[in-house]
Design a protein around this nucleic acid. Structure first.
Length: 279
DNA sequence: GACCAGGTGCCAG
DNA sequence: CTGGCACATGGT
């Protein structure tokens, strides 16, 4: 049991555990009361007990950026829709942040997420990291394997990590990133529609995965990934069937300017309680 | 065993 | 444009 103090980082309206367990990232590790989170190859070791974020390892600026401590939470909460279900989700998830993830690991992880439960996504992510990622000193998990690394593997190497039919997609996308067919960094300046169009050219990236990357890695807080839970919720609130795209447009309209935040709170609330809006 | 999971891509009508 | 189906894997 290592004893560490940790440098306090002011963090109002921030709930570390909730944020880490909300289905945005799948590789956070607990180590005797501290959380280890790898941001690319940068190790953060943090904990929170009813107050500031305590940082035992890692750069303060990296932590502030990654945990998005600059997000204007009061303004975001004020923009939540006023219906009872959204209010309930807000109250039960207060302090959950939309992280700023490195683009590649976010993209890759959500390619592997299709038709998988959160626990399975985590298992695949950890297998990929431990078998093919670079070691990082002091970290229980390895870094997410770089595009070039995955590009050099074969489909069976990825299937051995539990990816199933997703192996082909991750491999093909890794090769396109590695050979420069798409430049994830250059896309930062693209408009959201252009960004989405570009991401959706990649194998295994449909509208939902693209929106996850747009929200979780590119910080476009208006993006709304429509998965099975959000579809159920939107259906119950809208009381009219529709295509996934129609449901996304409904959500974008109804959830307001920070619809991505609302989406994440509703998703987590629904997934963990099983409750849906009552019409 | 059936059913479901933070979907995507393809094909028929 | 829409609906239906295959695609791997692992857990109730």
């Amino acid at each position: 049991m290592k004893e560490r103090i940790g440098q306090p980082v002011p963090a109002r309206d921030f709930n570390l555990r909730l944020t880490l367990e909300s289905g945005q990232i799948f590789h956070a590790m607990q180590d005797s009361g501290w959380w280890q989170i790898l941001v690319g190859k940068h190790l953060l070791e943090v904990q929170q007990n009813n107050g500031p974020l305590l940082l035992a390892c890692g750069d303060t600026r990296v932590a502030e950026e990654y945990f998005a401590l600059d997000h204007p939470m009061r303004k975001i909460y004020a923009s939540f829709p006023p219906d009872p279900y959204s209010t309930e989700a807000l109250n039960s998830c207060r302090g959950m942040r939309i992280l700023r993830q490195p683009a590649w690991e976010c993209l890759a992880t959500f390619i592997t997420s299709s038709m998988k439960q959160v626990a399975h996504i985590r298992a695949m992510s950890l297998a990929l990291r431990q078998r093919h990622g670079e070691k990082v000193g002091g970290s229980l998990v390895n870094a997410y394997p770089a595009p070039g690394r995955i590009a050099g593997l074969c489909e069976d190497d990825l299937r051995a990590c539990g990816l199933g039919y997703r192996a082909k997609n991750l491999l093909a996308t890794a090769r396109r990133v590695a050979d420069g067919t798409i430049d994830l960094d250059a896309l930062r300046t693209a408009t959201t529609p252009d960004l989405r169009t570009q991401l959706m050219t990649l194998p295994g990236v449909g509208r939902k995965v693209a929106n996850c990357v747009i929200l979780f890695a590119y910080g476009r807080l208006e993006a709304v990934p429509v998965d099975v839970w959000i579809a159920r919720i939107a259906l119950a609130m809208r009381r009219r069937k529709g295509t996934p795209l129609a449901l996304e447009e409904f959500a974008s309209r109804t959830f307001g300017p920070h619809a991505g935040y609302v989406q994440q709170y509703l998703f987590h609330h629904a997934r963990t309680t099983g409750k849906l809006p009552t019409r």
